[in-house]
Design a binder for these strands. Structure first.
Length: 485
RNA sequence: GCCCUCAUCGUCUAGUGGCCUAGGACGCUGCCCUUUCAAGGCAGAGAUCAGGGGUUCGAAUCCCCUUGAGGGCGCCA
């Protein structure tokens, strides 16, 4: 049996962390088993589905590098021979109606003329009387005359699935092992809405089967939908795919991850300067691990090592602090030209005019590569190369408001002006020499010098920084600092 | 209310009856390196394995109960 998995988002917003994790695990499972990864759009919620959401989801998937083998594509075309891959299009082709009618014919489904208000009331009363708040099945055996009456009054029926009245429905979950539900608890769920559109539990089963999906990997918020779907598979006499329910992702307070925990969409993290590789690596570790508890994975390694057996049953708290640490790790591993490429949008976005760069921008950006944890931190770190030093008050007070500061800066200024060349090694030698001849400790000179030239108490390695700034600019800044002391 | 699921350091986790006086990672603390900040190296604090009962020569690992948390009970997905 060939492995075919799918990610089936409903386009009602951006791709969220939880969705991305589900997509990732499906993708990894497919790659690991040399299977097929399908992307299907479940846009059967007529009110909330939007084309913009579809676009946004595509974008995030692409950013994360989760390329799919079959399904709806960003250019509006489709790839694969099981299409269409958008449920609204499948609806238009009559796919769902066909199977619904078949089930009605065999008595496994029926038309229900109850209005939403009636069903709501039914549930309310049941709940009050401490009975199960489920549909009571009153339309299960409507006579033809009754049906005609309803139709005559203009009532549009929904199609409901007839659940077995007794027995249990269970399955062997690939993550949770045996799970079972008492059929008595299960409701005759809606397959086709009054509008004719399919509801989730129905569309999902029909499509998974028709697309020959071999394994369903989804969040465990779907566990209670599963017995309904299993019964549908059986009614249709279809083979039930492998079922794997992933644990939820929670916020730091232990509740389901949501907006009030901060950024929840993949796009927001991308904007904040997290790398796609970081996100992929971090998300993989939320609910999955190797037996050696490995943290950092090389490119392509997850695809090789992923295994459903390593999946956690319990929910995981999303930890932005660890994510940020990991991003630093990924940034450090970046080749410098790649780093520049990724940093450029942030640099330009900060209004830094890079044309004025005294040395190739790559060099400047790479200067503090080991310190960046977020791409968005880069502009603030390199800004002083491109505009006059803005003196940090604390640093200025501490390093330049000292008895020796004037002497040091003046002396260094002189030494630099007299230098033949202006390379890191020469600058360092001259600076150390100045310190020595004037009986200063190296640090006594270095600190004020750093502040005078960059405005900050911390920064890149001192002499290379000064080299990049250039003699003229360095001297100019020393003069300015002198005038301010 | 009913049903389902889950339960190892603050967090992500390793662990499938003896190798566990419970390992790794993030975070935290200290030291080293060092012109700063980082990075790196080393060391350390941090988990009576939710609690209580069993089973067993032996349990984080198996069984039962309790508690807690999460999810579901839609013509949303």
């Amino acid at each position: 049996m060939s492995i075919r998995v799918r990610f089936a988002p409903s386009p009602t917003g951006h791709l969220h962390i939880g969705g991305a994790r589900t997509a990732l695990f499906n993708y990894l499972f497919a790659r690991k088993h040399k299977g097929v990864f399908v992307l299907r759009i479940e846009d059967t919620d007529e009110d909330r589905s939007t084309g913009d959401s579809v676009k946004s989801i595509f974008e995030s998937m692409k950013w994360l590098g989760l390329d799919w083998d079959e399904g709806a594509m960003p250019d509006g075309a489709e790839k694969g021979s099981f299409g269409p891959y958008i449920q609204s299009a499948r609806y238009a082709a009559g796919t769902y109606r066909k199977y619904a009618e078949e089930l009605i014919k065999t008595g496994k489904a029926y038309k229900c003329y109850c209005t939403e208000a009636e069903v709501d009331e039914m549930r309310r009363v049941a709940s009050l009387e401490k009975r199960l708040p489920k549909y009571d099945g009153r339309c299960r055996s409507l006579t033809e005359t009754r049906k005609k009456e309803f139709e005559a009054r203009g009532r549009k029926p929904v199609v409901r699935f007839r659940m077995p009245d007794d027995g249990c429905t269970g399955w062997t979950d690939l993550i949770h092992n045996e799970v079972k539900f008492d059929n008595k608890l299960l409701s005759d769920f809606v397959m086709l809405k009054a509008s004719g559109y399919p509801a989730y539990n129905f569309a999902c089963v029909i499509d998974d089967r028709l697309m020959e999906i071999s394994h369903i990997i989804r969040g465990d918020d779907h566990i209670s939908n599963t017995p309904l779907q299993v019964n549908l598979y059986r009614a249709l006499d279809w083979r039930i795919p492998g079922l794997a329910h992933l644990s939820m992702i929670l916020g730091p307070d232990g509740t389901r991850l949501s907006k009030r925990h901060g950024a929840t969409s993949v796009g927001e993290y991308a904007k904040q300067g997290y790398l796609a590789g970081t996100m992929k690596n971090y998300l993989a570790l939320l609910g999955w691990s190797t037996t050696d508890s490995r943290q950092l994975f090389e490119e392509g390694e997850l695809e090789e090592k992923f295994d459903l057996k390593g999946c956690q049953k319990s929910p995981a708290v999303f930890d932005p602090v660890k994510l940020t640490w990991m991003n630093g790790e990924y940034i450090r591993k970046l080749p410098r030209d790649k780093l520049l490429e990724l940093a450029l949008p942030y640099i330009k976005g900060a209004g830094i005019s890079v044309e004025k760069s005294p040395v190739p921008l790559t060099e400047i950006v790479a200067l503090e590569q080991e310190k960046y944890r977020l791409l968005s931190e880069i502009p603030a770190k390199i800004e002083f190369f491109f505009s006059d030093a803005k003196y940090d008050e604390t640093a200025f007070a501490k390093m330049l408001k000292t008895p020796d500061a004037k002497k040091i800066l003046a002396g260094i200024k002189e030494a630099y002006s007299a230098l033949g060349g202006f390379k890191e090694a020469e600058i360092e030698a001259a600076t150390r020499n100045f310190a020595k001849t004037n009986a200063f400790k190296a640090a006594q000179v270095f600190h004020p010098l750093r502040v005078a030239v960059s405005g900050r108490a911390e920064g890149p390695t001192l002499f290379r920084m000064i080299e990049y700034l250039g003699r003229e600019e360095s001297v100019k800044r020393l003069e300015k600092a002198l005038s301010l002391i």
